[in-house]
Protein backbone atom coordinates (compact mmCIF):
# COMPACT_ATOMS: atom_id res chain seq x y z
CA UNK A 1 0.00 0.00 0.00
CA UNK A 2 2.72 2.42 1.07
CA UNK A 3 4.81 1.76 -2.05
CA UNK A 4 1.77 2.39 -4.27
CA UNK A 5 1.33 5.73 -2.52
CA UNK A 6 5.01 6.50 -3.03
CA UNK A 7 4.73 5.66 -6.73
CA UNK A 8 1.64 7.84 -7.05
CA UNK A 9 3.46 10.79 -5.48
CA UNK A 10 6.50 10.26 -7.70
CA UNK A 11 4.25 9.95 -10.76
CA UNK A 12 2.39 13.15 -9.89
CA UNK A 13 5.62 15.06 -9.30
CA UNK A 14 7.04 13.73 -12.55
CA UNK A 15 3.93 14.73 -14.47
CA UNK A 16 3.97 18.20 -12.93
CA UNK A 17 7.56 18.74 -14.00
CA UNK A 18 7.02 17.44 -17.53
CA UNK A 19 3.72 19.32 -17.96
CA UNK A 20 5.30 22.55 -16.74
CA UNK A 21 8.19 22.02 -19.12
CA UNK A 22 5.88 21.37 -22.07
CA UNK A 23 3.82 24.51 -21.45
CA UNK A 24 6.98 26.57 -20.95
CA UNK A 25 8.34 25.23 -24.25
CA UNK A 26 5.21 26.07 -26.21
CA UNK A 27 4.97 29.49 -24.54
CA UNK A 28 8.59 30.39 -25.28
CA UNK A 29 8.16 29.58 -28.96
CA UNK A 30 5.05 31.75 -29.12
CA UNK A 31 3.10 29.51 -31.44
CA UNK A 32 -0.26 30.03 -29.73
CA UNK A 33 -0.18 33.85 -29.80
CA UNK A 34 1.07 33.66 -33.39
CA UNK A 35 -1.91 31.54 -34.47
CA UNK A 36 -4.31 33.72 -32.48
CA UNK A 37 -2.84 36.81 -34.18
CA UNK A 38 -3.11 35.31 -37.64
CA UNK A 39 -6.74 34.36 -37.20
CA UNK A 40 -7.68 37.46 -35.16
CA UNK A 41 -8.99 35.35 -32.30
CA UNK A 42 -6.83 36.68 -29.46
CA UNK A 43 -9.96 36.94 -27.27
CA UNK A 44 -10.25 33.14 -27.35
CA UNK A 45 -6.76 32.59 -25.97
CA UNK A 46 -8.11 30.82 -22.89
CA UNK A 47 -9.77 28.19 -25.10
CA UNK A 48 -6.48 27.65 -26.88
CA UNK A 49 -4.85 27.01 -23.51
CA UNK A 50 -7.50 24.42 -22.79
CA UNK A 51 -6.87 22.86 -26.22
CA UNK A 52 -3.15 22.53 -25.50
CA UNK A 53 -3.79 20.99 -22.08
CA UNK A 54 -6.44 18.50 -23.23
CA UNK A 55 -4.28 17.65 -26.23
CA UNK A 56 -1.30 16.91 -23.99
CA UNK A 57 -3.42 14.75 -21.70
CA UNK A 58 -4.94 12.88 -24.64
CA UNK A 59 -1.46 12.30 -26.07
CA UNK A 60 -0.25 10.98 -22.73
CA UNK A 61 -3.22 8.61 -22.49
CA UNK A 62 -2.76 7.34 -26.05
CA UNK A 63 0.94 6.69 -25.55
CA UNK A 64 0.48 4.98 -22.16
CA UNK A 65 -2.77 3.03 -22.55
CA UNK A 66 -2.27 2.20 -26.24
CA UNK A 67 -5.95 2.20 -27.18
CA UNK A 68 -7.16 1.02 -30.62
CA UNK A 69 -9.94 3.00 -32.25
CA UNK A 70 -10.17 1.01 -35.47
CA UNK A 71 -11.08 4.01 -37.62
CA UNK A 72 -10.70 4.31 -41.40
CA UNK A 73 -7.42 5.29 -43.10
CA UNK A 74 -9.06 8.60 -43.93
CA UNK A 75 -8.58 9.90 -40.36
CA UNK A 76 -4.89 9.12 -40.41
CA UNK A 77 -4.39 11.60 -43.26
CA UNK A 78 -5.97 14.39 -41.22
CA UNK A 79 -4.01 13.62 -38.10
CA UNK A 80 -0.80 13.41 -40.11
CA UNK A 81 -1.48 16.79 -41.67
CA UNK A 82 -2.23 18.30 -38.26
CA UNK A 83 0.96 16.85 -36.75
CA UNK A 84 2.94 18.18 -39.68
CA UNK A 85 1.54 21.71 -39.45
CA UNK A 86 2.32 21.84 -35.76
CA UNK A 87 5.87 20.59 -36.22
CA UNK A 88 6.25 23.07 -39.09
CA UNK A 89 5.21 25.93 -36.81
CA UNK A 90 7.65 24.62 -34.22
CA UNK A 91 10.48 24.43 -36.72
CA UNK A 92 9.76 27.92 -38.04
CA UNK A 93 9.50 29.35 -34.55
CA UNK A 94 12.93 28.15 -33.48
CA UNK A 95 14.86 31.37 -33.44
CA UNK A 96 17.89 29.82 -35.06
CA UNK A 97 15.99 29.75 -38.34
CA UNK A 98 14.93 33.38 -37.96
CA UNK A 99 18.38 34.63 -37.02
CA UNK A 100 19.99 33.17 -40.12
CA UNK A 101 18.04 35.42 -42.47
CA UNK A 102 19.14 38.94 -41.48
CA UNK A 103 22.77 37.85 -41.42
CA UNK A 104 22.57 36.08 -44.77
CA UNK A 105 20.76 39.03 -46.27
CA UNK A 106 23.39 41.51 -45.06
CA UNK A 107 26.56 39.51 -45.60
CA UNK A 108 25.82 37.98 -48.94
CA UNK A 109 23.88 40.99 -50.16
CA UNK A 110 20.62 39.17 -50.70
CA UNK A 111 18.26 41.77 -49.30
CA UNK A 112 14.86 41.51 -50.92
CA UNK A 113 15.42 37.87 -51.80
CA UNK A 114 14.69 36.51 -48.36
CA UNK A 115 11.33 35.18 -49.50
CA UNK A 116 13.00 32.94 -52.05
CA UNK A 117 15.43 31.77 -49.39
CA UNK A 118 12.52 31.02 -47.11
CA UNK A 119 11.12 28.75 -49.81
CA UNK A 120 14.48 26.94 -49.91
CA UNK A 121 14.08 26.08 -46.24
CA UNK A 122 10.42 25.13 -46.56
CA UNK A 123 10.96 22.91 -49.60
CA UNK A 124 14.09 21.46 -48.00
CA UNK A 125 12.06 20.46 -44.95
CA UNK A 126 9.23 18.92 -46.99
CA UNK A 127 11.46 16.99 -49.35
CA UNK A 128 13.85 15.96 -46.56
CA UNK A 129 10.90 14.66 -44.59
CA UNK A 130 9.43 12.76 -47.56
CA UNK A 131 12.83 11.27 -48.38
CA UNK A 132 13.22 10.22 -44.77
CA UNK A 133 9.91 8.35 -44.64
CA UNK A 134 9.90 6.86 -48.11
CA UNK A 135 13.55 5.84 -48.59
CA UNK A 136 15.73 6.50 -45.57
CA UNK A 137 13.71 4.48 -43.07
CA UNK A 138 13.96 1.42 -45.35
CA UNK A 139 17.74 1.84 -45.64
CA UNK A 140 17.99 1.47 -41.89
CA UNK A 141 16.06 -1.80 -41.81
CA UNK A 142 18.05 -3.49 -44.56
Amino acid sequence: MIDCLCLAIIGLAWGLAVGGGLVAFITVLGIVPRLADLTKTANRLINYEAAVITGAIAGALVSLLEPRFGLANFFVVFIGLGCGIFIGLLAAALTEVLNVFPILAKRVGLEGKTHTLLWAIVLGKVIGSLYHWIFFVRLGSL
Binding site: I31, R34, L35, L38, N73, V76, V77, F78, I79, G80, L81, G82, C83, G84, I85, F86, I87, G88, L89, L90, A91, A92, A93, I121, V122, L123, K125, V126, S129, L130, W133, I134
Partner: peptide, 18 residues
Protein backbone atom coordinates in the same frame (compact mmCIF):
# COMPACT_ATOMS: atom_id res chain seq x y z
CA UNK B 1 2.90 6.44 -45.26
CA UNK B 2 -0.77 7.44 -45.13
CA UNK B 3 0.18 9.35 -42.00
CA UNK B 4 3.65 10.42 -43.00
CA UNK B 5 3.09 12.00 -46.41
CA UNK B 6 0.37 14.37 -45.15
CA UNK B 7 2.67 15.01 -42.21
CA UNK B 8 5.45 16.10 -44.55
CA UNK B 9 3.14 18.41 -46.48
CA UNK B 10 1.80 19.82 -43.22
CA UNK B 11 5.36 20.54 -42.12
CA UNK B 12 5.76 22.96 -45.01
CA UNK B 13 2.31 24.46 -44.51
CA UNK B 14 3.03 25.10 -40.84
CA UNK B 15 6.22 26.98 -41.69
CA UNK B 16 4.46 29.09 -44.29
CA UNK B 17 1.67 29.77 -41.82
CA UNK B 18 4.17 30.95 -39.24
Amino acid sequence: LWLQIPYSVGLGLGMLLF
